[in-house]
């Protein structure tokens, strides 16, 4: 079986390389890919959508319909992780561990013992006997997270002009929360940004994208034809497209952020949503 697999892989690889030899050269200006549709996109982006970044226009407008489904794929991945991994049944372990924060001592409280108050500042619930607690990591991340989020907003908003946009900005936003979860622990992170929020926000992000498209449809144009939004934005058709792109980019950012966090919660704790990694 192993040998059959190896032979198949080698044949496939050899065929791929053999037929790749007929490819046009890198950066060949006369290849079909650069002479057929590209000139249209390069010449008409500004006039059509008033967006200097051609990639953004192709992604979110000319082929925005594909991108909507790519966002849906991201959301589906989050939903699939939840569906397959999440274990709702409460798994109360016989003993609970608490850290006494001022001294760093770990307490093991047997079932039936007196537990510290829920919102206690002095006692912190942990899930294993040894959970690292580092002042340096916590504080460094606390400082960095705010800047990551600020930069993420810039990336989302600036996708019209420079590399960036919803996917990249969403990843940054999501990773800032994940960084918080890693540097502190999952339970605290879930307290601030809970599962329900991430699930609903993920769906809401895609809904913002599809809803923008649907609004265009309700206003009488074709689905995702942002031109129809011109009366709402009180702008020209090209500017309406530009604003429409921003709307869907924000939707993408929400979806990607929330889904990344949701997937992290489920993967890092094997669906139990306890302390996590």
């Amino acid at each position: 079986m192993k040998i059959t697999g190896l032979v198949t892989v080698i044949i496939c690889g050899a065929l791929l390389i053999f037929y790749a030899m007929d490819f046009p050269d890198f950066g060949d200006g006369t290849s079909p890919a650069s002479t057929y549709l590209s000139p249209y996109f390069i010449e008409h982006t500004i006039e059509d959508a008033n967006v200097p970044n051609i990639v953004t226009t192709v992604l979110a407008d000319y082929r925005g319909y594909d991108t909507m489904y790519e966002t849906t794929v991201v959301f589906t991945a989050g939903l699939a992780c939840f569906f397959l991994l999440r274990r709702k049944e409460s798994q109360n372990p016989p003993a609970r561990f608490y850290r006494h924060t001022p001294t760093g001592i770990t307490l093991r409280i047997e079932e039936g013992g007196k537990l510290p108050a829920e919102g206690s500042k002095v006692f912190m619930r942990i899930d294993s006997l040894w959970a690292p607690d580092s002042l340096i990591i916590k504080n460094t991340c606390r400082l960095v997270i705010a800047f990551i989020q600020l930069f993420a907003l810039y990336v989302v908003a600036h996708g019209h002009h420079s590399p960036g946009g919803g996917f990249q900005g969403g990843v940054l936003l999501g990773s800032s929360i994940i960084l918080f979860a890693i540097s502190n622990d999952l339970r605290r992170s879930i307290k601030r940004f809970n599962e329900k929020t991430s699930a609903i926000l993920g769906a809401l992000g895609v809904l913002l994208y599809a809803g923008t498209g649907f609004l265009c449809l309700l206003l009488g144009a074709h689905f995702l034809n942002y031109k129809a939004l011109a009366p709402i934005f009180r702008s020209t058709a090209a500017m309406a497209r530009s604003h429409g792109i921003l709307c869907v980019e924000i939707g993408v950012a929400f979806a990607v952020m929330a889904v990344m966090i949701w997937i992290y919660y489920n993967l890092s704790s094997a669906g139990k949503h306890d302390e996590g990694l």
Binding site: Y36, F41, D61, Y65, G213, A221, H222, F223, L224
Partner: peptide, 9 residues
């Protein structure tokens, strides 16, 4: 979709 004719859209 999006009002763009083929092959652009």
């Amino acid at each position: 979709m999006g009002g763009w004719n083929a092959p652009m859209g």
